[in-house]
Design a protein around this nucleic acid. Structure first.
Lengths: 197, 197, 197, 197
DNA sequence: ACACACGGGACATCCCGTTCGT
DNA sequence: ACGAACGGGATGTCCCGTGTGT
């Protein structure tokens, strides 16, 4: 673990540089030389902070894990109506992936790893489970039509938000949260409207 | 000529093997030796059909291009109500990416290339444009509420369908079209419901 | 496994070049570039024959293993007096390590590995066991004094012969078998002489 | 001064740590970080005492040089029968390499260097010369048969003792002097026995 | 036309030696 | 003076693309 103040800052700069590189090129094409160059370091200097390329990716994954964990816990609490917690969760995720380059990169790496291994993406599974649970609560609270199966609704929500992330990641991330907000309004409108029928 | 016939078959087998490799590992980590091994060929034989790795990817991209082109043209025709054409387009895309390994791989490669270049994915842009146009038509036809801005609706639809693709690609592609159909039902229900209010 | 005639020759040339490099510099300091240069190859070409540096060392070890195995089996047979078999074994080992560069290198690598791991050298243990057994036979046959403990005699023989190898390896290997022969004469003389007393 | 005293102690501890590392892994694979870790220092601190890796090895070599020099001078003196001086020299060398980790390491490094340079090991040459001289004296004193050529006898003795060192270094160095003593008894027995013929 | 071997180059890894800050 | 961070370079690994033989 780094002990000096400068080392902590360097560690962070390395992590950020790696995030941009991984997000742009993926794991295999990410170039440690580029990462070092981005912050004026040498490859040898990186080795003092991370023991190898995979370790860099793991650090990003840990960062994402922590950020998502707190959001999911917040969404699982009972302090607010389920509808509000669901909306907050989705917007918070949108803001996270838009503003936090490390989370952005870690998500890409997680998806790549899952595709290579032929396994589901753990993060998406967990988010889906929470969303599914919240949709059920919202329906029981009477805000949304209970006759609609909750699983397709959860599928739709998760797919839409992560799909927006992918589509938006190429188109420029600045507008992600705005578009996610607009999409949410549409969704909420129609799901609420379905109740009124 | 029989020689040409076998060559064509080999060409196709190479393309399929490359599709699976690219879909699983992405461009950079795809291994030409593995591709050759998948169909019992040697690397040297590959170069009789494709001049290099990029050429393989280009062939897959061309395949996807052709398949999508016909779907988009169909959606742009005027032979059916816009709502039906929109539904058909989305389901057809779902079936395409689920059943056609080459399209699946080409989509991943297109997204990777766009992310590396920092440009939008042309395919997604084109689909989005068509969907946006169709949503407008549906609204003008009175099937959906015209007071809702059509762009967020198109965003939602595109994001949801390609998001479902990504989420589903990890979770097993067999159920993709089923889930897409269910999601479509939800969307159509609520968008129609909004009209009824 | 290499299939073509040229490949077999190249494989052998690589093995020889590696033997000289490993024998001279040991495992860690052996340079694959040097090995390739010795036979006018590139490092990349080596990769077609050996998957990595350790694999090269393993091939040499396998070579030594086979050579020693046949010598030990010959020494364990019963076709000749034990004294003669013991003498033949030692001279054959001397000739082996003097004339076979691969065996020479493999022995050095085996010793290095054993030192790093803190374990005994399997090869030396096996030779010692055979020698100990043969010494016992020689004593029971009456050629050597039975009142002398056989273990120190075996220790002496093994130590002398492998020690001669080490001392001789630096001083030039050409005279190894000659010196070993002379040493053997001394040993046989005195051990036989002890009987006569 | 107390400062100097501590520095001397640290210097010694570094030397010991380096000895164990060099003895186990050889020069190339010895890791300065490991050496520092063994005694709770950092690499930077090492460079306060030694200017580089080679300097560390040179210090060990100097240590061995001094120890061997005194033994050889003792063996060259005329205060005792040659047979006794020869026996003492060999046992003293055995004890040295068994108990003194620095001497042990330095011997390995000396042998490695000689192998890399293609030159004989100076230490072994000097020991061999002394032993050869002593064997001649012993023969002239009438303790051993003069008709036996003294060079092979010296070869045998040197090879046996350094061979025992190598074989024993892997098998555990604790019993080295015991085995050397037993081997000496065998040698002395037979060489004396040869006289009796 | 295929199979195998080979050339070439890029990259991750690794560690020695130095330079900062404390 | 000690220790962490850093620079630099060498080397093993790996794979794409080309040749040579069958």
């Amino acid at each position: 673990l780094p002990k000096q103040a400068r080392a902590l800052r360097t560690y962070d700069r390395v992590l950020d540089a790696a995030a941009y590189e991984f997000a742009q090129y993926g794991y295999a094409s990410a170039n440690l030389q580029n990462i070092a160059d981005r912050i004026g370091l040498t490859k040898g200097a990186l080795y003092g902070h991370f023991s190898n390329k995979e370790d860099l990716a793991a650090a990003l994954a840990g960062h994402l894990e922590g950020a998502v964990q707190s959001l999911l816990e917040e969404a699982g609490s009972t302090g607010a109506p389920a509808l509000e917690r669901l909306r907050s969760l989705l917007l918070a995720l949108a803001v996270l992936f838009q503003s936090d380059a490390r989370a952005h990169a870690a998500l890409r790496l997680a998806i790549e790893a899952a595709q290579a291994a032929g396994t589901p993406v753990p993060l998406l599974d967990r988010v889906h489970a929470i969303v599914l649970s919240l949709v059920g609560e919202v329906q029981r609270e009477g805000s949304w039509d209970s006759s609609v199966a909750s699983r397709p609704v959860a599928d739709l929500i998760v797919a839409a938000f992560f799909g927006a992330y992918w589509a938006g990641s190429a188109a420029g991330r600045t507008e992600l949260s705005g578009r996610v907000g607009a999409m949410w309004n549409i969704l909420a409108l129609v799901l609420r409207g379905a109740v009124g029928r």
